[in-house]
Design a binder for these strands. Sequence first.
DNA 1: CGTCTTTTTGAATACTGTCAATTTAAGTGG
DNA 2: CCACTTAAATTGACAGTATTCAAAAAGACG
Lengths: 258, 258
Amino acid sequence: MFAATIEAPVRLSRPRASEAAPAPALTTNCSACHLRELCLPHGMPSEDLGRLDALGFARRRLPAGRQLYQAGDRFQYIYAVRSGTFKSSLALADGREQVSGFHMAGELMGLDGVAQGRHASSAVALEDAEVCAIPYATLMDLSSGSAALQHVVSRLMSREIVREHSLMMLLGSMNAEERLAAFLLNLSQRLKARGYSAHEFHLRMSRAEIGSYLGMKLETVSRTFSSFQQQRLLEVDKRHIRIVDLPGLTRALEVQAH
Amino acid sequence: MFAATIEAPVRLSRPRASEAAPAPALTTNCSACHLRELCLPHGMPSEDLGRLDALGFARRRLPAGRQLYQAGDRFQYIYAVRSGTFKSSLALADGREQVSGFHMAGELMGLDGVAQGRHASSAVALEDAEVCAIPYATLMDLSSGSAALQHVVSRLMSREIVREHSLMMLLGSMNAEERLAAFLLNLSQRLKARGYSAHEFHLRMSRAEIGSYLGMKLETVSRTFSSFQQQRLLEVDKRHIRIVDLPGLTRALEVQAH
DNA sequence: CGTCTTTTTGAATACTGTCAATTTAAGTGG
DNA sequence: CCACTTAAATTGACAGTATTCAAAAAGACG
């Protein structure tokens, strides 16, 4: 059963070419997926890939702003982003939220739910998006028969730990310029890995969301963007970013005279 | 093979009652361990516990200040703290370090190494300490035959993710007093869970290490301790801490008028 | 076309960091 | 046993960075 509080009615927009398929709406075939090198199947031998295919993960479309899951919801699925961008965030006691990550195609969400059997964070689509819903229990069953799959899952969790390490480092020891530079360079790399331009892109998140993620106020984010522009490192037009001086931006990260 | 750069010669102090045992020096029997409810075996059915016992994890003693592993070292073991306290830390490009965690009896270290096959952080004993060295590959082999063990390991990794989440929140949205209060309350809880006083304890780490962990300078840590003392929340004598007003300290966390 | 949200920018404030001096504790060696 | 050295912690004064409050401009959306 889906957790009723969050699993929004799946609005399959324009069921294109779905008449022929016998399966209920869209399911995923990992071995044929264009994201396979970025996603769960990465580094998996083809025989195990076949087993993943057999599961046929259901796809879900979400319009911009829709929540995928919420902290406290029963944990059943991990989600692989197929398209669009998500933010995940934690709620503080007093109602504030802190953004804990942004996720794009091929990245997994929801691994923090394994610990308690309930999601520890919430995930929201920042633009129209699509995910694969991977039933965790099924994945575990499958991986007990496959050392390779087991390792892949463990490695993904560990990668999440490492990712958070670097964010901690950022939050614990960098100033505003270093934080924003790190953020932009990270985004740039991930976009490049997905075949997009590393130099020019559109931010899917607001200044407030960036600030929340980086541990600074939205005004400071805005000022830092302006400062980078004055330094001729960036050209900024609202959410459209052009990295003019990539080495310079990288230096903003390295030259830390703390 | 042990990674020669870090695996210090195991100095088995006083091999007590080891003559009779055929196994090389000290090994662990999880099912009889006084830490079993806090450590890896937590929540594991007894049959799986038996399998853990069969592995007989080697113990290692470390004097204060000795490194257990270093970032970049080949990843082979995860470590369970038996006694003593550890800090784990990340090295920054410019040589600075950031403390990413403190670990005490029953807690696991090294899970961040799974991702790359190399340790992503370093771990150092803050006082004389002892660990169980758990060979990761063996643990994986074992868990492919046991769904319960597999779940336990996954849950532990996920718990690490959640733990880091809360640290991110701390670093991203709290001021100095809130950070230190959160740190002390967390320590207090963990000590209590281990049968120690929740109100009075001895810090194993320096002001600089606390500051690094909390994303503030050592002087600010010191000032905040003094401030808590003036507010009659704590009594502080160097590293000896007495929590005088636990509810008050908790309020320092909740009353965030940001 | 008006409303609402997002972003930018300015000015003043607050908090934390920096630099420096002092105290205390812990070790070292004469 | 005491002088000496070293490391850790505290405290003060000042500087610098980020936050807060406020206002205006620019888009986005219905």
